[in-house]
Structure formats: C-alpha cells, structure tokens
C-alpha cells in the first residue's frame, strides 16, 4: 500500500507507523522498566513474596498476600453487586424501554463512568461511609449478623464500602458492553420465542442465552476495572493490610497500597517491592483485559456468522 511510488507516501507511512509502534513500545517499556526495578525484590523474596502475610517496610519484610486478598475480595463484592444491576439496566434499555426513553437513560448511566475516581472517593468518605456506619451496617448485623463477614465494629471505612463504590464505578462499563451485546442478538431469536407464546421475560432469557459469552466478556472487563481502581478505593478502604473475614474491617488493595505509599518509599528495597507488586497488578489487569476482549470479539464473529446464515 505504501509503495505507490511517491516520496510523500513513504514519509507519511513512516510517521503514522512510528506512532502506532509507539503504543507497543510504551507497553514493552512499562514491562521492562518495572521488571528491572522489581529485580532486587524478586531476588530477595522469590515467589514467597506473593504468599507472605506480613508487610513491614521498616523490617524489610514484604508479603503481598493481604493486598492480593483485599483486591480480590473488594472486586468480588463489586461484581456481586454490579452484575445483576448492570444486566437489569441493559435489559431494560434494549428489551423494554421505548427508544425515546432508552437514549437519555443510557446517556445518564454513561455519565457515571465519566465521573472521576477521586470524586467517587470523596463521596464515599462523606456520604457512603456514614450511611454504612449508621444504617446499612447495623441493618445487616440485625438480619444476617450471624455471618462472619458481617461481624465486628462498623466504622464505615473498610472492605464493604470499597466494594460498593467499586460496584457503582463498574456498573456503567458492564452495562454499556452488555447493551451492545444484546443489541447484536438477531431479532429473529426474539420473534422465535414470542411466536411460541413466550412472555417478555422468557424471551429475554433466550436473548441472554444468545449473548452469554459477550456478557461474560463484559463482566471480565468490569473485573479488570475493579482490580485496578485506585483513588476511590484508597480513600474508603482504610489502608490496613490485614486478612480478616469481616467486611466492615479496613483492608487494603494493591492499587491503594501503591497510591498511599509509593511517594514515601525512599529505601531501595521498599521501592523495589512496591514496583514488584505493581508489576503483578499490571500483568493481572493486562491478562484480564485481553481475556475480556477475546470473549467480546467471539460474540462479534458469531453474530456475523449468524447474520450471513
């Protein structure tokens, strides 16, 4: 394509090619730079780094497990809360609401994604945390307080608050992907169900069956976002590296550990340990996102095939 002869074409191609290449170079450089900085920590602690339960920078003891635990738990809470709501909104927008209503609602849901993370954090500290301390927490303890996850003192700052904030933040992302996926389901599938006397909801279940791998992709994408979310979490989770059952207790995640401590890490081994845990976060989110993309792509190719007959 580039060899249509003129010099202009060659220069033009070279310039845009370099720009495209830069994206790959950035990612390669991120990996290389972080890997290199993480070497001292990796050599010193080996694989045990990931399983250590103590994080004491002053004693040069670095175990990542509490942060991995916090990241996984807060993300799982977020998914549990967000998946039904996101699916509900997407179904409402695609299968039920008239177009005139669906558009503004979809836009408002998307606006939620435009609100910066630090704003969610602020809102979490001053609105959500008191709500949990005064109402939600006591309510849960009254009715399901026998569960270990709902025991203990409620300060309003902790794992549950972080999970709820995360749920709010990933809901617009999951919703918008699920919407696209549902819209891609051929109309004939709905008609087939309706023609058999299916109710609206039964028809919706058929549509969901068609869209299942795309929905899985949307959920995985939401998971990726939750795992990497930083500011909002660091502001409400309490930044305490502990592994306990109670969701009312403070905890910590990888991303919020980095946000809270990176600037103060002057000691070389401390910095290296932080970068190693950052590298773990990077690789995990990279893999999650790649996986999400493959799932969503598989839907696109499947529906294309269906459309062609």
């Amino acid at each position: 394509m580039a060899n249509t002869g003129t010099k202009g074409d060659k220069v033009f191609h070279a310039v845009v090619f370099a720009a495209a290449l830069s994206i790959i170079l950035i990612v390669a450089a991120v990996i290389a730079v972080m890997f290199q900085s993480a070497i001292p920590s990796m050599e010193r602690f080996g694989i045990g780094f990931l399983f250590g339960r103590e994080w004491k920078p002053a004693q040069e003891e670095f175990g990542a497990l509490p942060f991995i635990f916090g990241t996984v738990t807060s993300s799982v809470i977020a998914l549990i809360l967000s998946i039904p709501v996101s699916l509900g909104i997407a179904i409402f927008l695609v299968e039920q609401a008239p177009k005139k209503l669906a558009r503004p609602i979809a836009f408002m849901v998307e606006l939620l994604a435009a609100i910066p993370s630090v704003v969610y954090g602020l809102w979490g500290i001053f609105v959500l945390a008191p709500l949990i301390r005064e109402y939600i927490g006591p309510f849960l303890q009254t009715y399901v307080g026998f569960l270990p996850i709902f025991q203990g003192r409620i300060t309003g700052i902790g794992m549950l608050t972080a999970g709820i904030i995360l749920a709010l933040m990933i809901t617009p992302i999951i919703t918008s992907v699920v919407r696209d996926v549902l819209e891609a389901v051929p109309h004939t599938q709905r008609e087939a169900a309706l023609a058999l006397g299916a109710t609206k909801w039964e028809t919706t279940m058929i549509v969901l069956g068609n869209a299942s791998s795309g929905i899985a992709g949307a959920v995985v994408l939401g998971l990726g976002r939750a795992v990497g979310e930083t500011m909002a979490v660091t502001m409400v989770i309490g930044n305490s590296p502990q592994i306990v059952a109670s969701l009312f207790e403070p905890a910590n995640t990888i991303a919020s550990l980095l946000a809270a401590n990176f600037a103060e890490a002057t000691d070389e081994m401390y910095l290296s340990a932080l970068i190693e845990i950052g590298l773990v976060l990077f690789l995990v989110t990279f893999i999650i996102n790649a996986f999400a993309k493959l799932l969503i792509l598989s839907v696109a190719s499947k529906t294309n095939a269906a459309k062609q007959g």
């Binding site: 990612v27 972080m34 795992v227 990497g228 946000a259 990176f262 790649a290």
Partner: peptide, 19 residues
C-alpha cells in the same frame, strides 16, 4: 497494535504513574 492499545486502555493508571 489494536490489541495492545485496548489492553493499555484497561491498565490501571497508577501503573503509568509508577512507570
């Protein structure tokens, strides 16, 4: 490039800060 760009979009921005 497309694939790497999409995954880079999803990488936590704090990682870029560290980089």
């Amino acid at each position: 490039v497309r694939f790497v760009a999409d995954t880079l979009i999803g990488v936590p921005s704090i990682i870029i800060g560290i980089f």
